[in-house]
């Protein structure tokens, strides 16, 4: 059982998931996530390694990796911007946020900036419709978007790698009534 790609650290993280399930195959989704976290995207040889680890055939991992939209089978930018385009967001201006982002970053949807910093993608509803329009960048949500906030977020990310405009636990509205 020789692995081709995965680092020892990644393997350790995957193995730590084993105890959570009665069946190793269940670790497929966690393993793909872990590989993506550690390597930014999931390569074919990484999928084959996951199969080896979990006692599956590579196609069984590939089936899963291509089913779920969050897995990046090709490299993406350091900041992966996913703008929600489903109804609630589109009703209140997701379209202009996308236009704004395209112009500002100089890329079309689906592309990555030349410096490799930003990739722009449209996604379906992310369950933040109360904070529409919204986008997700890496593991955080950004809601209530307008051009000014988008500017702040992008420059924060460039400067600090994070932005305090990221949404914390959901608060809207502050309370009923």
């Amino acid at each position: 059982m020789k692995l081709k790609t995965l680092s020892e650290k990644t393997v350790k993280r995957i193995e730590a998931e084993y105890t959570k399930y009665p069946d190793k195959r269940s670790v497929t989704l966690p393993a793909l996530r872990i590989v993506q976290e550690d390597n930014a995207h999931i390569s074919e040889s990484a999928m084959a390694d996951i199969a080896t680890l979990l006692g599956l055939t590579p196609i069984q991992v590939y089936e899963v990796a291509t089913f779920y939209s969050q897995y990046n089978l090709k490299p993406v930018g350091k900041y992966f911007i996913q703008v929600c385009k489903t109804l609630a967001c589109s009703l209140v201006g997701a379209g202009s946020i996308v236009d704004y982002l395209q112009e500002k970053l100089g890329i079309a949807v689906g592309e990555t900036t030349q410096d490799g910093l930003f990739t722009l993608k449209l996604v379906e509803c992310l369950a933040a419709c109360g904070g529409a329009p919204m986008m997700q960048i890496n593991d955080r949500y950004y809601e209530g978007l307008n051009p000014e906030r988008v500017d702040r977020i992008l420059s924060d990310l460039k400067k600090y790698g994070t932005s305090d405009l990221a949404t914390g636990p959901f608060m809207l509205p502050v309370m009923q009534g």
């Binding site: 959570k20 399930y21 069946d23 195959r25 269940s26 670790v27 497929t28 989704l29 966690p30 793909l32 996530r33 979990l54 899963v64 089913f67 779920y68 939209s69 969050q70 897995y71 996604v123 379906e124 509803c125």
Partner: peptide, 21 residues
């Protein structure tokens, strides 16, 4: 158990399949 981007996994039996990897 974290999903990975698929609305259909909210359907209860798709959800089970998804947990099963």
């Amino acid at each position: 158990h974290r999903g990975a981007g698929a609305y259909i996994c909210g359907e209860e039996t798709a959800l089970l399949e998804s947990i099963e990897g």
